[in-house]
Design a protein around this nucleic acid. Structure first.
Length: 533
DNA sequence: TTAGGGTTAG
């Protein structure tokens, strides 16, 4: 039966539950002792439910460094609540004091959880310790606001930077424009740009950012206008400017224009570089011009520009997509022969190609081979393999890979949960549905907000199989008379009223007609339901 | 985390 990682063997950690014994600390000279290994520390945090134990152990350790803390937080990225817990434990450490980078990291995590109260509390704490906040801090906060649909809020954040003791300058202005542009808000960025370009003395970089923003939206004519304006103001385009435009044409599907632009760049001797070539190889490849892409790839060496790993990745990817995986593997091997070291992206591309060709076993082989090149599968690697197993109906194998993920200390992300939960509905087995329920609980625990669709599906599935409770954490109460369901999946509560929709309730309190709080599970009065609205 | 090239899916 599926254990869903409940039975993962506990790793031996020397300081778990007791003070470290000095004699046992230096048993290994080849690998670093466990208490300096961020992976082992992250595992310990994930597996320890007792906060006092963690606090005691972490406070007795004296070897914390910003670098170590950073690496631990990185590994806990997909478990926001635990990451913040860890940050808070060290914040009260008798000797260790968090660095500015540590604060930025924690702020990023809190913002991703949309816990803005914590975000601003951290900003205040940072300031009181004279660690910032820096322009970087505000770029992080702005980015999170924009990506959760609060662009206006992001603008306010930028404009209020100085109130938090952080000065605005051209760099922070550009960084902020870039945040807006990368989130497809080029129009808004351009408006702001027009208001402030005089005050901050907008430069080529500012214009490049805006032009790239329009290119990301496939609005190449707009991008060109911006660049024209730039030249009229006496600023000189750089190679980056041209590369932005080139990529923009390819992205917008204007292949003829892109090719013409590339030829122009060569003719005008703007000093095309490896980025230019990589853009062309990739751009031609994705529209199926594989032969031409390969020709450009071969041409660059003659032109004295060496391909980078990214160039190989581009070629390998397009061969996988528009040609044949075997040819892609040949390029992968060619790359090795030439002395290049593949990176995670290289492996991800090859693995995806193999999966797509139905060659799952070889995909797994490549996943195992990654460690030869000193890289480890990342969450995207696992997601690809899990997705293809699910598509093939190999649910057990998908779950095996999922379990292996945690064993390799890689935390699942929102995609992973969405892929797996969807897959739990194909076989229509009640066992699968309870796995879906457990996955749902787990993702909520880890700070991911499931879509209503996901919630509906899981709940309806469980109702169909007659399940009413999953270990007390996910409970369903059905009131036949008024036809509503209640689902509690702490810390979220969803209420389904008369088949309408799920309402998410945050910090909602259930009360009866005497305004007395009811214990869970309970039945609602109608007035309460309206109050929830 | 001051700009451009590789992973993800239509």
């Amino acid at each position: 039966m599926l254990s869903l990682r409940e039975n993962i063997s506990k790793i031996a950690v020397p300081f778990l539950g007791a003070h470290p014994k000095p004699s046992s600390l230096h048993h290994s000279t080849t690998s670093p002792p466990p208490y300096t290994d961020p992976t082992i520390i992250a595992k310990l945090i994930l597996e320890t439910d007792n906060p006092e134990t963690l606090t005691r152990n972490f406070h007795t350790l004296a070897n914390w460094t910003p670098h170590l803390v950073h690496n631990v937080l990185k590994r806990l990225w997909n478990h926001g609540p635990k990451a913040l817990h860890f940050f808070n434990i060290l914040d009260t450490h008798p000797f260790y004091a968090h660095s500015a980078t540590g604060f930025d990291h924690a702020i990023d995590i809190a913002a991703r959880l949309r816990d803005y109260k914590t975000v601003w509390a951290l900003v205040a704490r940072m300031r009181s310790r004279k660690l910032g906040p820096s322009p970087k801090t505000f770029a992080i906060i702005a980015e999170r606001y924009v990506s959760s649909g609060k662009a206006d809020k992001a603008v306010k954040v930028f404009l209020s930077m100085h109130e938090h003791g952080c000065s605005q300058n051209l760099n922070s202005f550009n960084a902020f424009l870039d945040v807006l542009c990368k989130s497809k808000r080029a129009e808004m960025a351009y408006k702001l740009f027009n208001i402030f370009r005089g005050r901050f003395r907008a430069d080529t970089i500012s214009y490049n950012i805006i032009a790239n923003g329009f290119c990301l939206k496939k609005q190449t004519p707009r991008a060109l206008e911006i660049l024209k304006e730039m030249v009229e103001r006496g600023l000189v385009p750089t190679l980056t400017t041209y590369n932005i435009m080139l990529k923009g044409y390819f992205r917008a599907g204007q292949i003829k224009e892109a090719w013409e632009f590339f030829l122009q760049m060569k003719r005008r001797k703007v000093g095309i570089d490896v980025v230019t070539y990589t853009t062309v190889v990739h751009g031609l490849g994705v529209v199926g011009e594989v032969v031409k892409a390969r020709k450009v790839f071969d041409e660059m060496i003659g032109a004295g520009v060496l391909p980078s790993v990214a160039t190989f990745n581009a070629l390998i990817q397009v061969l996988c997509k528009k040609d044949n995986v075997e040819n892609a593997v040949l390029v992968f091997e060619e790359m090795l022969r030439k002395g290049y070291t593949p990176n995670v992206t290289t492996y991800n591309v090859v693995i995806r190609g193999l999966c797509h060709a139905g060659n799952m076993d070889r995909a797994i082989e490549y996943m195992d081979k990654m460690k030869d090149d000193n890289c480890k599968p990342i969450v995207q690697t696992y997601n690809v393999v899990i997705r293809y197993y699910c598509d093939d109906g190999e649910i057990e194998k998908a779950l095996e890979v999922f379990e292996r993920m945690t064993g390799g200390s890689c935390l699942p992300n929102l995609d992973t949960y969405n892929i797996l939960i969807s897959a739990m509905f194909v076989r229509k087995r009640s066992d699968d549905l309870s796995v879906a329920g457990k996955l749902l609980i787990e993702m909520v625990d880890r700070g991911f907000l499931p879509r209503k669709f996901t919630f509906n599906r899981v709940l309806n599935g469980l109702l169909l199989t007659g399940a009413r409770s999953l270990g007390g954490k996910l409970d369903i109460v059905k009131n036949i008379k008024s036809d509503y369901f209640f689902l509690s999946c702490e810390p979220l509560r969803y209420l389904h009223v008369a088949g309408c929709r799920w309402l998410q309730m945050k910090e909602a309190k259930a009360v009866n007609s005497d305004n007395k709080q009811l214990p869970f599970p309970f039945c609602f009065s109608l007035s309460f339901m309206q109050a929830v609205h």
